[in-house]
Design a protein around this nucleic acid. Structure first.
Length: 520
RNA sequence: GAGGCUGUAGCUCAGUCGGUAGAGCAACGGACUUUUAAUCCGUAGGCCAAGGGUUCGAGUCCCUUCAGCCUCACCA
């Protein structure tokens, strides 16, 4: 296809030249245009990268001052001009998101994190110097303005600019001004662009922060203390998950990133921090899905002298408080339906739900095995509770619209949990399900060191190590031997809570920087 | 890790039966002093994800690779 007329090098240079020329006319031209204006801004005596800009008001606050606009008694009937208005002098800063030129007028919308407002820039009104500067403005540049807050003839609340301040040049072309970013890959890789230009993206991020803040406030109200445990563990325990492996050079030891917060928080319980929690990142070396990211945010709470019932009340409080903190009603939209968070949430036992949705008595071992086989599970050699739980996950969990507390799990699948006094086959544990998602998990914590050691050992027997709920952690057992007060413990998946409270179908919309393969 | 779908201008998307590329927004030039998805006239912008193949001819068909999305598995 290619002809080699001249020397190869010369041919390549020719081709490279052509590509360079094309680029100069193509993508790079957009940048060149912006750099041209950047130069012009400098020539006009302004710093294209701006500087400190004091005393501006958030745009949301400026909008709330609309009532201060005073309209004069009469308009000019002869010229048909609107009545004179006098408004407050305001100073604002924001990014240019829309721009409309009309002769010697420019209308622009600038946005900050509290809202959007229109600017009016008239050549006569702002004077020659400001007008020259205004010619150098592009979409996505950041400007500050001083002006008067009034309404235009069409009633739009507007800052009539008197003085323009240049604050930052953008030398890249922004996405479509109305559609924003749609490509999910770009939205994740260039989250900053997504936040600026995609509707609802910034609001979602800010709402997450409000939710997290609310969770901390709720816990503070109940006198819980926030701590920070280690993320580098020699034994990654407290959950059944594959850890990330890493290495410390100076000590020359292999380490894992934590998969749960549990075991160190319980050590603190032993140490006398009676109400303790951590809200932090955990890491699990597992698959990625709309509900799973390799690193995610987990809340774990431990309360001395409580049990799983105390944790149920706390869970309800944390969730209801968070909904209120985001200014939402207790009936929240979710996909095409509505979730009713009005407390108290339903509380049902594992066995009740099993019978209801699986249609088999929870005590009918043969019936359960038959059903499991019918679904396609291999039940050979498996403990009945394991089989039962497989059926539960298949038949019940997805059907739980919730919110519903599923209480009292089979003890054999809960190695870190205290059993019921009157029935040692049942563990004092609940999971909160909403829309088929497991949102919270709580126990009456096991504090018998001998039983804990036994259960650790039993878990290790004949089980793939990564499937083990709890790897043997002798140091933790030693802590228990010193006496951990009886306690309730709770875990909440913060990302999933945020998903539910922001009507987000994928975890990638509420984790700002989800894990992606590196580009090319 | 398995299966399905997707990748075309800076962004959002068309592209028929295989005949070497289109629109809107953004950009550039021009008109317009109360616009608001502003409008109108004109201009420019593409290694069609990457690499191979089939063909006279590939954005289009085939193979490989890369990335994303969805479903499943693991899990919260």
């Amino acid at each position: 296809m290619t002809k080699e007329n001249g020397p190869e090098k010369a041919g390549l240079t020719e081709k490279q030249k052509k590509i360079a020329e094309k680029k100069a006319r193509g993508a790079a031209k957009l940048e060149a245009d912006r750099r041209e204006k950047l130069k012009k801004i400098e020539e006009l005596g302004h710093d294209p990268w701006g500087g400190r800009f004091d005393n501006h008001l958030p745009i949301g606050e400026i909008r709330s001052r609309e009532g201060e606009i005073v309209v004069g008694p009469v308009g000019d009937c002869e010229t048909g001009k609107a009545p004179q208005q006098t408004g407050p002098k305001v100073r604002a800063a924001g990014r240019i998101v829309l721009r409309r030129k009309k002769g010697k007028l420019i209308f622009m919308d600038i946005r900050d994190w509290t809202g959007t407002i229109q600017l009016f820039i008239g050549k006569i009104q702002v004077g020659e110097e400001n007008w020259e500067l205004a010619q150098c403005l592009d979409l996505a540049d950041i400007v500050g303005v001083d002006g008067e807050l009034r309404r235009t003839q069409t009633g739009e609340l507007t800052i009539f600019v008197e003085q323009l301040h240049f604050l930052c040049k953008s030398i890249e072309t922004p996405p479509d001004k109305h559609k924003g970013l749609h490509d999910p890959e770009l939205r994740q890789r260039m989250r900053y662009l997504d936040l600026i230009h995609t509707e609802g993206s910034l609001e979602r991020a800010l709402r997450r922060s409000k939710i997290v803040q609310s969770v901390r406030n709720s816990l503070a109200e109940e006198c819980f203390v926030e701590v920070e445990g280690p993320t580098l563990h020699t034994v990654a325990g407290g959950a059944a998950a594959k850890p990330f492996a890493t290495h410390h050079n100076a000590l020359d030891i292999d380490l894992n990133l934590r998969i749960a917060l549990e075991l160190h928080l319980k050590r603190l319980l032993v140490g006398g921090i009676e109400r303790v929690y951590e809200l932090g990142r955990v890491y699990r070396n597992e698959g990625i899905s709309p509900r799973h990211n390799p690193e995610f945010t987990m809340l774990e709470v431990y309360q001395a002298y409580g049990d799983y019932r105390s944790m149920m009340d706390l869970t309800e409080k944390i969730i209801v408080d968070a909904i209120e903190a985001t200014g939402q009603p207790l009936k929240l939209p979710w996909n095409d339906t509505v979730i009713d968070f009005t407390p108290p949430f339903a509380r049902k036992t594992y066995d009740e739900l099993f019978e209801e949705y699986a249609g088999v008595s929870p005590d009918d071992e043969a019936g359960i095995r038959a059903l499991a086989e019918k679904i396609g599970f291999n039940t050979a050699g498996k403990h009945i509770d394991v089989v039962k739980n497989e059926v539960f996950e298949e038949k019940v969990e997805d059907a739980l619209v919730g919110p519903v507390f599923v209480c009292d799990y089979p003890a054999s699948i809960c190695p870190l949990t205290k059993r019921k006094k009157d029935n040692p086959a049942i563990a004092e544990r609940f999971e909160l399900f909403i829309q088929g998602m497991e949102l919270a998990n709580a126990y009456t914590e096991l504090n018998d060191p001998d039983l804990q050691e036994e259960l650790f050992a039993k878990q290790l027997e004949g089980q793939a190590e990564e499937d083990s709920m709890a790897k043997m952690d002798n140091d933790f057992v030693l802590a228990l031997r010193h006496g951990m007060p009886p306690a309730g413990g709770l875990g909440i998946g913060i990302d999933r809570l945020v998903m539910l409270l922001t009507d987000s179908a994928t975890i990638r919309d509420i984790i700002l920087f989800p894990l992606l393969r590196p580009e090319g």
